[in-house]
Design a binder for these strands. Structure first.
Lengths: 226, 226
DNA sequence: CTACGGTGTAATCAGTGATTACATGCAAGA
DNA sequence: TCTTGCATGTAATCACTGATTACACCGTAG
């Protein structure tokens, strides 16, 4: 615990070996992106914040992209965990509820961690294909979605002839679009009294009620469910 | 027409004044982004391709961001035109069809011009707020969507208590998500026999049939409509 | 013909990602 | 304990970037 560093100059004689440079670099990267945006990020600034020379990061990450990919992996771990937690909070016998929980968890996390989400979802800043961790976790969520829809379909809550892959694609695109629009600032003109988070949450519910489990034939009946 | 340039060295004595540097710079920018991606873009390369010195572009665009914003404005003009053309091709008395046409036109254009779309939709590469052209055209499309939904609602094809802004947001997020996922390479693992364009097109139709004009109460009846 | 103003050039700046040769100090083996 | 090995960090350096400045060029209005 004596090595989390903070580079308090003048305090310690600045041990030559940092102790945990990799972790410090990743943290510093996230901080700097949150402060000045990902476009402004420079490895030199990351090194400076970690209290280390400009070339030091390249001992651990062969390129800036590799550094950002490491950040993305850490972020993906947290996203996966957040989604899993959201799913575990709902009735496990209700696949549609679990399906919605995935979307909810995903959106909540993305909006609470815009920096991390931005890095994960970019395919130009990071080397997605090179990271089996990223690919695997991404694929796992998709498979989980298909599985849940299959269960819903088996319970008769979905038409038997609906292509699950198509529906999963639609759901992914919807959630992805909502998250990116919110983070990219595409609807700053929304009702001032209503933060994007609420609009996004309601949009997800709208999608679920229409696409996954059609609740009733006509929309005219206002529904005052919980 | 004698000035479209191409910097044929040795041909002409290289007229000191380019003639239409602004246009040439924008074209060169688009070309270079298509070749090496937007991350790799440098103003120097743009200048070189336009056959001009590295500092010349800054006489017309005060910054790299300003150059990209100009590209975005050109792109938005074309997108608006493409959407308008798509709308004009459908029955003008059918607001739902026009609504779908907007989405179709948007998606088709985005997938045919990924570079332009990428620049338009980014809020970090360009200065969106500073360009009234971008803001106006963006807002015009949204207003058109609301208007069409209002007409559909008036025709009884939508529940009278549905919040049109919410529905428009949902539709925008869906289309935006589809376009970005396709362009950002988020589903390269799709059926190899089925290019993303087709998957995206069908996804849009799925959305329309479920969200805008609920065709029937239960999904079980396979529908072989046109 | 001349002065002027818009256009492009050349030189230059600080800052960037990346590489290299070189210091440093921890830890294992004698 | 000494010393050797090696991972870790440093310093110097490279080519390149966005951006600025002073200056050269040239079509044109007077």
């Amino acid at each position: 615990m004596a090595k989390t560093s903070v580079t308090k100059a003048g305090d310690q004689p600045k041990p030559y070996h940092h102790g945990n440079l990799v972790g410090a670099l990743i943290s510093a990267t996230v901080e700097l992106i949150e402060e000045h945006g990902v476009e402004q990020l420079s490895v030199r600034e990351v090194a400076k914040r970690a209290g280390v020379s400009p070339g030091a990061p390249f001992r651990h990450f062969r390129s800036k992209t590799a550094l950002l990919t490491a950040v993305a992996e850490q972020a993906m771990d947290r996203l996966t965990e957040a989604v899993a937690r959201a799913v575990s909070d709902v009735d496990s016998t209700d696949p549609a509820a679990a399906f919605e929980a995935i979307g909810q968890g995903y959106l909540e996390w993305a909006m609470a961690n815009p920096t991390h989400f931005q890095i994960i979802s970019s395919r130009t800043l990071i080397d997605f294909e090179a990271s089996s961790s990223l690919r695997d976790q991404n694929g796992a969520i998709r498979e989980k979605m298909v599985e849940l829809l299959a269960r819903a379909q088996h319970q008769g809550r979905l038409a038997p002839d609906v292509d699950l892959d198509h529906l999963v694609l639609a759901a992914r695109a919807y959630v992805y679009g909502l998250a990116r629009m919110a983070i990219d600032g595409h609807f700053p003109e929304w009702h001032p009294s209503e933060p994007p988070a609420i609009a996004v949450r309601r949009a997800l519910r709208l999608f679920m009620s229409q696409m996954i489990v059609p609740p009733r034939c006509d929309l005219r009946k206002p529904k005052k469910s919980s």
